[in-house]
């Protein structure tokens, strides 16, 4: 098994952190992982994105030519990557700010108004964690408890409050999907 995911959005939306948290938790689950950030000459603007590969065998290329999942946190990300997704793959859309929908009939779409949910929680900055809640539940790559532990490790346990907010945000995303 090998699963490749692209996380993409504006710089500042926390998309690299989303990728690192997935990679970290998959490592802790015992999988092979690679995390590859796109890097540019500019410090601000443009889209930030990263690719995470999770596999039960050695990973050859950390690049995804046909990713299984796309997490599009803004519209440019959708336009840039929607045609790379493998047939039958899933696009997770931040529907709070993306009004367009994918042009692919052969991919599944999961719309998540993650910024609105975050605002309801009183913290618009945790939209990415909410999206991760949805993604972790739907993809099933790693169990939620392993993911939450990784999230805490990555964010550092400096501020207790932050961990609590993140856990709440993750739960809100996790529970958003009714299955």
């Amino acid at each position: 098994m090998i699963i490749k995911t692209i996380f993409s959005g504006f710089g500042g939306q926390g998309v690299l952190m989303m990728g690192i948290s997935l990679a970290h938790s998959a490592m802790n689950k015992g999988y092979h992982v690679t995390y590859l950030p796109a890097y540019g000459a500019e410090m601000r603007g443009g889209i930030a994105n990263c690719t995470v590969a999770v596999a039960d065998e050695e990973i050859a290329s950390p690049v995804a030519s046909e990713p299984d999942y796309l997490i599009a946190m803004n519209a440019p990300s959708l336009f840039t990557f929607q045609n790379k997704i493998t047939s039958g793959g899933t696009i997770f859309l931040n529907s709070s700010i993306v009004k367009d929908r994918p042009n692919r009939p052969d991919v599944k779409v999961c719309t998540v108004p993650c910024v609105d949910i975050a605002q309801d929680l009183g913290n618009p900055r945790v939209a990415n964690i909410i999206m991760m809640g949805v993604f972790i539940k739907k993809s099933g790559i790693v169990p939620d408890d392993i993911y939450l532990k990784s999230l805490e490790t990555i964010m550092g346990s400096k501020k207790k409050g932050v961990a609590e907010i993140n856990r709440k945000a993750f739960a809100a995303g996790f529970d958003y999907l009714k299955d």
């Binding site: 990679a23 690679t34 995390y35 890097y39 950390p62």
Partner: peptide, 10 residues
């Protein structure tokens, strides 16, 4: 190369 430098692996 740049990919090796930027990439994360366990």
């Amino acid at each position: 190369d740049g990919m090796m430098g930027q990439m994360m692996e366990p």
